[in-house]
Design a protein around this nucleic acid. Structure first.
Length: 109
DNA sequence: CTCTTGACTGAGG
DNA sequence: GCCTCAGCCAAGA
């Protein structure tokens, strides 16, 4: 179902909140689920305002599993710590076993 | 309305 | 596998 009543940002927040504990996904995957695979950049752009909105932005990384958005968190390694606390191994801003912890909303939903 | 920015992605060398 | 270029699109000034 497409909650078209919500704005693009709200949709992104919605999907992000659905990411299971210990899993991660990519901006493109979220965008694709929203039917806007070409707006992957907008997903990240939207996440920029996710702070303070109960959105687990730390579970969203780019297609390479790289923590491209970690610089938007308070600390320099806050995002990594959050992921590691969920059982996700992160080394040098790179999610390990990315294919195993990857969660695709387009397929899981 | 126009221009810039950006937590992206895919294709090409 | 690494680097570079181009496309895409929403929001803010």
């Amino acid at each position: 179902m497409h909650q078209e009543t919500l704005n693009f940002f709200d949709k992104v927040y919605d999907v992000a909140r659905l990411i299971p504990y210990g899993k991660v996904t990519s901006y493109g995957a979220i965008a694709k689920y929203l039917g806007a695979v070409r707006s992957a950049r907008m997903v990240g752009y939207a996440m920029n305002g996710s702070v303070g909105k109960d959105v687990p932005a730390h579970r969203v990384v780019n297609r390479n599993g790289l923590l491209t958005g970690k610089q938007h968190f308070d600390g320099t390694n806050l995002m990594q710590q959050l992921l590691e606390s969920e059982g996700i191994k992160v080394i040098d801003n790179q999610v390990q076993d990315f294919g195993k912890v990857f969660w695709d909303p387009g397929k899981e939903l």
